[in-house]
Amino acid sequence: MALDTPAINTVPLGDERLGELLVEGVSKWFRTRRDNVHALDDVSLHVRPGEFVSLVGPSGCGKSTLLDIVAGLTRPDAGRVEADGVPVTGPERHRLVMFQESALFPWLDALGNVLFGLKLVPDLGRRQRVETAMEHLRLVKLERFARANVHELSGGMRQRVALARALAPDPRVLLMDEPFSALDALTREQLYDDLQEIWRTRRKTILLVTHNVREAVCLADRVVLFSPHPGQLREVFDIPLPRPRDINSAELSGYASRVTAALKSYYTRDAML
């Protein structure tokens, strides 16, 4: 597998804040005509460079909103967000997003989609771009579908192309919003292995939103638990398991059941309101 590609944005040695994420006291309201939704309430989170953090929580607790804010696509109403030690003012190529719904461009084929971000990377020759794009399609096992149109791919294949597109420009931070929810179990487990390998060799900072607690535990250094109405950060679980991890291992199950128990308490509490 082509995992040892030369990094395009090589992190300069010594600058230990590159890839760091800092969220401090972030609040967000959505005002609609009918309602004023308090999507995030005073959320603080520090993610070390190269750390893998999973966000779990009931639907509507503001996970996607937080990801948007970190990406620079949405401005928080209060609090501050820093990436690489500097305040986030807008989206940036070093923080790429894999959206909850497939955001592939239908006017481009699979390869064209992966190339899109690469074309915006300065100092990259044409040959190099195509090679890098093909490498990443190979990584998600879709090199045979390089010329396929988006509508010809299954939901799972689309998510894999989206993963290739997000990885290809070699961002320092990867923000993933339920990237694996549309995949079958086997492909998903294969991608867990691949993602762990990518994370190990390339040391990306990853924020992963998921509803699958085992997935969260399997991949992350820390699992962060949110509760809704208003969206609040409730608990943080450290997962000190050795890597690479097998999602079916017994120790992993132990951690997962603890997170699930905590998660359940928020669902019931919510139901009682």
């Binding site: 620079g72 696509l73 807008g90 940036e92 190529r93 790429l96 997003v97 955001a103 461009f105 899109f116």
Partner: peptide
């Protein structure tokens, strides 16, 4: 689409 494009620069 526009959001994805924006993050990619």
């Amino acid at each position: 689409y526009a959001r994805a494009a924006r993050t990619m620069g």
